[in-house]
Computed example of a mutant assay.
Amino acid sequence: MDTEALRSFVLAAELRQMQHAADELGVTQQAVSKRIAGLERELGVRLFVRTARGVEPTLDGQAFLPHARGIVAGVDRAVTAIRPGSRALRIDVLGLRTAQAVVLHEYWRSRPGTELDVVTLRVDDPHVVAAAVQAGEVDAAFRGVTDPATLPGEVRMIHAFDSPLELLVGPRHPLAAERAVTPDRLRGLPIRVPGIAPRSEWGVFYDQLATEFDLRIDAAGPNFGNEVLADALAESADLATLVGARDRYLWPAQHDLRRIPIVNPALVYPLSLLLPRTNPHPGLRAVIEHFASLPPLTGPAWLPSWARNRATG
């Protein structure tokens, strides 16, 4: 089976655009489409359906995706295992538009030639990710365990950096013209945050946040992605969501969405890094130093319970 065809399929499935997959691979969209068509012929199934936004995996494509992703990851690990010189530093992030990926990109741009492999494990439970760190599948992962005592003995958790939340609303929202808002002004407003998963650190975070400030945070129903959420915000006169200040989201210009800082106190999501307790990858030191160089929080801030007394573990 052609591993480059598998790689093209995985990227197209994750990015939902053949052109985006082609851009990532440095080839033409026609080349990506040809590879995937060959893979479909070999498997005897359709892997994608066309949509107005790009492509979506079929049911067969969804079933095939985790296996294809595992094959591609295995090939990559095999190649890096015999690559001359230092193996690339492999770090797991929750998504390529998150603050984690944005800050890692800033670090990489500041150090030309750095070997860095940014991956997404697509796992909600941070304990599963900790096991991947312990097993050496990744060198570090941007995940937090709300009870550090439950970490494997060979894995430690350190504070990476803080991500203040912002309110994201459409132009007809009652707070759309505000330059900043305080948490008390969010009470009673419908706040949609799709993708809050059981056993995830962000699930605990939003539970504590909603309780502390009496917020109506709705995570019910399927998660159709950021594009669908942006459409809903643009059309609504009262719906809002919460995003990290460094998160990179895109939406059509006509949506006219507004990002509004939340202050007094700032609502802060603490980003942590899981890494081996012994013999960590030598490239991690410079990454951690980069985190330490980021501007600190100013003004009053609210943090979830597990971040109020920080320790390096």
Rank of each mutant, 00 (worst) to 15 (best):
V102D: 13
G283R: 12
G85W: 03
G195R: 01
M18F: 15
V75K: 00
S86Q: 15
W306S: 13
V49A: 11
L186Y: 14
L175P: 14
F213L: 13
V10I: 02
N264A: 14
D162C: 03
A220R: 04
A68Y: 09
A197N: 10
P300H: 10
V133L: 07
A307C: 08
I191M: 06
E4N: 05
P276N: 10
P84C: 10
D147K: 03
A234H: 01
A130N: 04
G74K: 08
F161W: 08
L15S: 05
A21H: 04
E166I: 07
V55S: 04
G244H: 09
V123E: 15
V45G: 01
V75C: 05
E42P: 04
L250Q: 10
E137C: 00
A286R: 06
L257W: 01
E227M: 08
L94I: 09
S163L: 00
A240E: 08
V145R: 03
A180E: 02
R35I: 07
V118E: 06
A160V: 06
L121I: 04
A210F: 04
A99H: 01
F205W: 12
H20I: 03
E42L: 12
I288V: 15
S236W: 01
V181K: 03
T211D: 02
H281F: 07
F291N: 01
R50K: 15
A5R: 05
S293E: 09
G299N: 10
T28S: 15
A37R: 01
A132G: 03
E137S: 00
Q254I: 14
V103E: 13
R246A: 15
E24D: 01
A234M: 12
D231E: 15
M18S: 12
G44H: 05
L209W: 07
L104D: 10
T182N: 04
A37E: 04
R35P: 02
E166K: 09
R246M: 15
V118C: 08
V79S: 05
D162Y: 00
A176W: 13
T150A: 09
F64M: 15
A237T: 06
V119H: 09
A220Y: 13
S272Q: 08
L168K: 02
K34M: 12
G26P: 07
V27C: 12
P84D: 10
L242R: 02
E212H: 10
G61E: 11
E201C: 04
V55C: 07
R308D: 11
A37M: 02
V145G: 09
V169C: 14
G61Q: 07
D76Y: 11
T98A: 09
W202N: 12
T312S: 13
T58Q: 05
N226D: 14
V103S: 08
E289I: 06
L186H: 07
P300D: 13
T120Q: 05
G54Y: 09
R143G: 00
A131C: 09
Q254R: 14
W251C: 11
T241I: 08
Y107T: 06
R185G: 11
T114W: 10
P261F: 04
V268G: 10
G70M: 12
V129W: 01
R7G: 00
D139P: 08
P152D: 08
R109Q: 14
Y206I: 08
G283I: 14
I262T: 02
R199M: 14
V155I: 12
G221M: 07
T278L: 14
G44N: 06
S236Y: 06
H173V: 06
T241C: 13
V138M: 00
V118M: 12
D124Y: 07
V93R: 02
L271N: 09
S272H: 10
